[in-house]
């Protein structure tokens, strides 16, 4: 199937003087008034709400220590030189003795969350957690130790905030929905698709948010 793109000459819509002065102004004002009375707000009230991101989001990276085979692919592909290999003494279960092995550590001052390290890891020893809004007290804290790198970082916003998620809607674009409700629906529906019920709830949540 070969359908080439085709140029299509178009024209800027012309308007008569009266059409411009009357219809143009009234049209603009009508749209403004419409949204004044029926606003379509998408703002996330951030610390009070936070987006529950879906799995697959390229958030912070966690190491699964036991799966790492010290191949250094992650450190080699890191475009920001954030990941380095350090040698530590570990107990090898097969050889039954302590030996020096290399493990990756990450410097979050430099990380750009491109996810190359996760994608290149041959044993899937790295994975993303689906959140990205973390707080560190100092830049030195962002240079993670090997122990910290194995823990999922603490997601502070989740303690106070309400998880919300955005679903697509034909009328309103993105609609903010409380996450639990949608999650419950999804589990019932088992299809992973936002049903009509969740959309109704979404509009409710939207109305309540004003």
């Amino acid at each position: 199937m070969h359908v080439p793109a085709k140029p299509s000459p178009k024209e800027v819509p012309r308007a008569t003087f009266l059409g411009r002065a009357v219809a143009g102004n009234l049209g603009a004002l009508a749209v403004g008034v419409k949204y004044f009375f029926d606003p379509n707000r998408i703002t996330l009230l951030y610390p009070h709400e936070y987006i529950k991101l879906r799995q697959g989001y390229r958030g912070y990276i966690v190491l699964i220590f036991d799966k790492c085979i010290s191949c250094a692919s992650c450190a080699r592909i890191c475009p920001a030189r954030a990941m380095k290999m350090v040698s530590i003494n570990v107990f090898d279960k097969k050889l039954k003795k302590y030996m020096k092995k290399k493990y990756p550590v990450i410097n979050y001052n430099r990380c750009i969350f491109c996810g190359f390290c996760v994608d290149v890891c041959p044993t899937e020893a790295l994975y993303h957690v689906p959140y990205h809004d973390l707080v560190y007290n100092s830049m030195a804290d962002m240079v993670l130790t090997l122990e910290d790198f194995q823990k999922e970082p603490e997601f502070v916003t989740a303690k106070e905030g309400v998880p919300v998620t955005y679903i697509y809607d034909e009328k309103k674009g993105l609609v903010k929905v409380h996450y639990e409700e949608e999650g419950g629906e999804v589990q019932k529906a088992e299809g992973g698709q936002a049903s009509a019920a969740t959309e109704a709830q979404g509009e409710q949540a939207q109305g309540g948010g004003g």
Binding site: G32, Y35, F36, P39, N40, R41, I42, T43, L45, G210
Partner: peptide
């Protein structure tokens, strides 16, 4: 507030 209503946001709120 009025501009915020038209413009998909909340305006002064916090």
């Amino acid at each position: 507030k009025a501009a915020a209503r038209v413009q998909m946001r909340y305006g002064p709120w916090e």
